[in-house]
Write a protein that binds this DNA or RNA. Structure first.
Lengths: 343, 343
DNA sequence: CGTTAGCACTCATTTGCGTCGAGTGCTAAT
DNA sequence: ATTAGCACTCGACGCAAATGAGTGCTAACG
């Protein structure tokens, strides 16, 4: 049996209706809802076929049909086209609120949440190419020096280092020159034990400071506690199928313990870099989100920095809109680095 | 009518029982539960009195009684005593996991959540006495300079400033000396327009950089987007009286939009500095938390920096335990600054 | 042969109803 | 002042009947 023109239309109608109502949809509804001018009986026959083909399922006999994962997948793959006007609006708001990076990302998450009524997440950009751009030690007071490390993409990290004895200006200068001349432009892979030993030797009695600095550098560059901004977690209560106690608790937990969301990122990064991915139900890499659909995309932030944006909602999410929103936000973030630069 | 000895005991018994079960408690239960050797009828009379006095209410005729807000308040005010052993345990865990400030605070929130099974929050310390301790400009590349600002309490802020043209080393040095000599030790109130104008004049053609730096300083010191760490928001699902859709959604929202929690902080700061505060039900400064109780405390972080910790749970929360936990965490954070220093 | 009207059947949901029992208030006896 | 006893209230629970949305199948129709 083939999925002919008419079946496609009916399937489309079923999914669309289900997305709107969240209720199983019956033959009579479709009969009236579409402009096919078919009786409910005919629709019933077609629906039986569609069920046999695996696109829709009945939650129980004598209920209407709901889309199966395969059905959603079909819908996503074939019927997606963006909502043009809303996308335009979104762009405006985003541009207007241009701010510093973290505000920006927070804003992006919020915007998506408001726009779609689903839960959303945005990760801060993370560099894969971690060259050191600038490094400086400064004396704060007698017992503390401050190490400032800037890596590609203008990610900045401060570390306060405790020192035993006061360092004079000349020593500070020497250490600074030493560090900068040897480390500038290097990425973490290039900083090997040999280099460190050599630096320590040259620093003489201040070798321990070099060690502390190297620790800080390592930590900065590795940066395993990735920042994740989320928004709209409470939107899940708008979808009864997600808001029973157990499920809601799991979801909220995942959103609070953001590290649980990193599975999504790992999954995302391993794959083709520049596409929008849609996980439906069981396809989700996160166990507790089996009843959800997740849409993710990467954005590029110049200099090999990359971050992720994602939207999490019920399986009956409005895929058109979600994908449209994701695309918009993605392209905004993609171009942000450049804009930020010239501003 | 007076709240005599026996009434107090009965009220205590009612609240204690309700805290454990979450169900309205009847006269018979109390009659057996206490060692007063009174019949249920007597208890009923007393309960009628207690109701008239406003300490307990009936959810409906022919149900048991539950504590009113006034009842909880009475309980909290008079019957609190800490759980000593658990407090000890907590201290150990906290000490063991000593880490950098933000990790530390996150950890504190998590610990409280695990320990109490309620939702918790911890704010980063905020300085009221905002003297500038150190200030430095560095050149990152031709188009960017980095301003590092350290204020009392070792709060560090970085700002990247875009510049039109390359600045040579000598100019950078001059600017640094200029800024440090004039601004060191000053708090924001002391930086007036006169000073700024004078600085700009001395900086000559680089006046615009001074302006950018001043902006950054102002923002650092004011720091109105206070960081708040939360944990255990999903604990609210453990209490049926909070987990109906509307309430849960509101609460989760408050925890996500952390700025909603700042009302709590404002309230907290206005008042007596060093005590633990308990808001019961309607007393809460946050509208959407009318059905909750909130326990908060301040901690001191040296040099006039102060932050807040709080626990949010159902009205029938285990006040003893919560207050104990809060006290422990508070005292840990209070002493942390010193320890951090000498480490 | 595709389409449709009609009908019997299914089954989750709703509704009404009787029962149960926890709990109360009141009164009269101790 | 305390308590036993009793009538009363009212939510919770269980159950059966009613409801109705939806199906599958068959026979008739153009």
């Amino acid at each position: 049996m083939e999925l002919d023109e008419r079946k496609t239309v009916i399937l489309q109608a079923i999914i669309k209706n289900y997305l709107e109502t969240g209720e199983p949809v019956g033959s009579r509804t479709i009969s009236k809802y579409t402009d096919l001018n078919l009786s409910s009986a005919t629709i019933r026959n077609e629906m039986a076929d569609l069920e046999e083909l695996g696109f829709i399922v009945q939650p129980h006999t004598s209920a209407g049909r709901i889309p199966s994962d395969k059905g959603y997948r079909f819908y996503v793959d074939t019927m997606m086209q963006e909502h043009e006007k809303e996308v335009e609006q979104l762009k405006d708001v985003l541009l207007e609120k241009e701010e510093k990076l973290d505000h920006m990302l927070k804003q992006a998450a919020k915007l998506m949440a408001i726009n779609t009524n689903y839960a959303t997440m945005v990760t801060a950009p993370r560099s894969s190419n971690n060259a050191i751009k600038f490094l400086q030690l400064s004396r704060i007071d007698d017992a503390h020096i401050l190490a400032v490390i800037v890596i590609e993409g203008n990610v900045i990290k401060n570390t306060v280092i405790d020192v035993e004895e006061k360092l004079d200006d000349e020593t500070m200068l020497k250490l600074n020159i030493l560090l900068n001349t040897h480390l500038n432009g290097l990425s973490v892979e290039n900083i090997n034990l040999g280099l460190i030993t050599s630096l320590k030797q040259q620093a003489g009695i201040y070798g321990s400071i070099i060690e502390d600095v190297m620790d800080a550098v390592a930590e900065t560059i590795k940066e395993d506690d990735l920042e994740i901004y989320t928004s709209g977690a409470n939107n899940i209560f708008k979808y009864p199928e997600l808001s029973d106690n157990q499920k809601a608790s799991d979801l909220i937990n995942a959103f609070e313990e953001k590290h649980l969301l990193t599975q999504l990122i790992d999954e995302d990064e391993s794959d083709n870099k520049n596409e929008i991915k849609v996980y439906i139900g069981e396809e989700s890499p996160i166990q507790t989100m089996k009843d959800c659909s997740i849409v993710t995309a990467n954005y590029e932030f110049g200099d090999g920095m990359r971050g992720m944006i994602g939207i999490i909602g019920p399986k009956r999410m409005d895929y058109d809109k979600v994908v449209g929103t994701i695309k918009t936000i993605k392209s905004q973030l993609d171009t942000m680095y450049k804009k930020d630069d010239k501003k």
